[in-house]
């Protein structure tokens, strides 16, 4: 049986006076790549620029230090999984499971991202400029001190916010795919029992799981709450706030914090 393609390349990179380390990921297996990232962080790097990334998984997994990691190329699945403080910036598309169980910190994707983004995230922020795939923001949760935030500039496919238990999900419909259809796919908010979901633009009410959630138009107070988030989005991706506000926003909120309570035997 073949061993995983290990490469010996990628010796520990230099850290310059500004605390920047550059890593060339070409041909490097993800294990080695993450070793290099941790190593430069240990040696004091504050910014890490990784170039020629192509499909390496788990980049920046579990990083607790407040460093910034810039990724050039398409990172593999589970980017920034379990991250706890780092800022990870992707300058291309990202694949599936970005920010899996994110704890704190921020992930910024300048392209599209795949399925299952922000799965079970319990803190931190994810900003995606483009579209995202299926099952985004499912099982998001929050604590009194920590509220996760996931903002999608384009559209989201089916099962957005499924079983969402907390935090905020925002979908802005600013890409071409929103002009071709609705901003969110089917089964949105199924089993949702906490947090809130905000949608901008055209929504098909039959796509919203109204057995679990209420769909209503955002009022002035809600929009005022959203404004700081939208400002942040505009700064990151160079959008005009007025253009974003020039369209209707919808709010999806759960009816109950225990939608499945009736499905279990009563607790004595």
């Amino acid at each position: 049986m073949s061993e995983i393609i290990e490469t010996t390349s990628g010796s520990a990179p230099e850290i310059d006076n500004e605390g920047l380390a550059r890593i060339d990921a070409r041909g490097i297996h993800y294990r080695r790549l993450n070793e290099l990232v941790r190593e430069v962080v240990r040696r004091g790097a504050r910014r890490i620029e990784i170039v020629n990334v192509n499909g390496q998984r788990y980049i920046a997994v579990g990083l607790q230090e407040k460093v910034r990691v810039d990724i050039h190329g398409v990172p593999g699945n589970d980017l920034a999984a379990f991250c706890d403080g780092a800022e990870v910036v992707v300058h291309n598309n990202a694949q599936d499971a970005v920010g899996n169980t994110l704890n704190s910190g921020r992930v910024i994707v300048h392209g599209d991202a795949g399925d299952v983004i922000g799965y079970g995230m319990r803190g931190g922020e994810i900003f995606v400029r483009g579209d995202v795939g299926y099952r985004v923001g499912i099982h998001m949760k929050e604590e009194p001190r920590r509220k996760p935030l996931l903002v999608v500039g384009g559209t989201a496919a089916d099962f957005l916010g499924e079983y969402q238990a907390g935090g905020r999900l925002v979908v802005l419909g600013l890409t071409d795919s929103a002009r071709r259809g609705t901003v969110v796919g089917d089964y949105c908010g199924t089993g949702m029992h906490g947090g809130a979901l905000y949608l901008r633009g055209q929504v098909d009410p039959s796509h919203i799981a109204t057995k679990f959630v209420a769909l209503s138009e955002a009022n002035e107070a809600t929009l005022a709450d959203l404004k700081p988030i939208l400002k942040q989005f505009c700064e990151l991706f160079d959008y005009d706030l007025d253009r974003i506000l020039d369209e209707r926003f919808w709010v999806v909120q759960p009816f109950s914090h225990k939608p499945f309570a009736g499905g279990y035997a009563a607790n004595p």
């Binding site: 192509n54 499909g55 593999g76 598309n93 599936d96 399925d115 496919a157």
Partner: peptide, 17 residues
């Protein structure tokens, strides 16, 4: 996965899910 496509084609004209 998208990354596998980039092995053969660095900049495809169109990528979609």
């Amino acid at each position: 996965e998208e990354a596998a496509i980039h092995v053969l084609c660095a900049e495809p004209e169109r990528v979609w899910m």
